[in-house]
Amino acid sequence: MSINILRVATACLLDEVGRLLIVRKRGTRFYMLPGGKIEQGEGSLDALRRELHEELGLDIGASALQPLGHFRSRAANEPDHWVEADVFIGNLKGPAKAQAEIETVAWLKLHAQLEGDLAPLLREQVIPALLQRLNREQ
């Protein structure tokens, strides 16, 4: 049996009070980080910037996004798939508007009890790595 792997680039975008921007795609249950699939011949950062513009109307400069890490987990919305994600971190200074396939934009308080429908990658790997990094920087 072969493993179906989706290569994606996503962003941990934090607002001025340290909340994390999360999104939910139309017709799905799980919230995840904004971003999307990396197209053939495209770099992770270029894919991420393209997806942020298409899905949220954001124009974020490459220098505003720093690598957080590379993570692998089961996919939230696609059965029998795994996701490999290059995850970046940055600060969001303007509003994000749901467009394209994004149905809902929400803010997650990182230090609150993690409840709700969060994608496995976000809940199990990215949030712990993000909290560890933010704690080191304080």
Rank of each mutant, 00 (worst) to 15 (best):
A129Q: 10
H70S: 12
Q113A: 02
L48K: 02
T104R: 12
K97Q: 14
G36F: 09
D86R: 15
R50A: 02
R7D: 10
E115H: 00
S44E: 14
R29Y: 07
L52R: 07
G36H: 01
G36R: 06
V105P: 07
R49N: 08
M32G: 09
S2K: 12
L110W: 11
P34C: 02
G36K: 05
A96H: 14
A85I: 11
Y31D: 04
L68E: 10
L48H: 05
F71M: 13
A129T: 07
K25M: 01
T10R: 11
D86S: 14
I38S: 01
A96T: 02
D86T: 10
A106M: 00
A85H: 14
E84R: 14
L14A: 09
V83A: 11
H111C: 00
I3R: 13
P34R: 15
P79R: 12
A106S: 10
I5A: 03
R19Y: 06
I22P: 01
I22F: 08
E124G: 06
R19M: 03
I127Y: 04
R74K: 15
F71H: 04
E101C: 06
V105M: 00
A119N: 08
E78A: 15
L21I: 00
E54M: 01
R136D: 07
N91D: 04
A11R: 07
M1S: 10
L118P: 03
L21K: 10
N135M: 09
R49G: 06
A9P: 11
I89D: 03
L108C: 02
R136Q: 15
D46A: 15
R74N: 04
R24C: 05
L68K: 10
P95H: 05
E103A: 13
L45V: 12
R133Y: 07
M1W: 07
F88H: 02
D15Q: 08
T10Y: 00
I38A: 08
K37P: 09
V126E: 02
S73N: 11
N77I: 14
G41W: 01
Q66Y: 12
D117L: 11
K93C: 04
K25S: 11
L68F: 08
A106K: 12
N91H: 10
R26M: 10
E124R: 15
L58Y: 15
I102W: 00
I60V: 14
L92H: 01
E124F: 06
A98G: 12
E101G: 00
E51S: 13
A106W: 00
G116L: 03
R133F: 06
R123Y: 09
G27T: 10
V8P: 06
P67A: 11
L65C: 12
D15T: 14
E137W: 00
P67H: 10
L58Q: 10
L56I: 01
Q125M: 14
P34A: 04
E55Y: 10
E16N: 08
R49M: 09
G69L: 12
K93H: 05
P128D: 02
M1E: 05
A85L: 08
G35K: 12
I3N: 03
H53K: 14
F71Q: 11
A11T: 13
E39C: 05
S73V: 00
L122C: 03
T28P: 06
G57Y: 15
R49E: 01
H111E: 07
E51L: 07
H70Y: 15
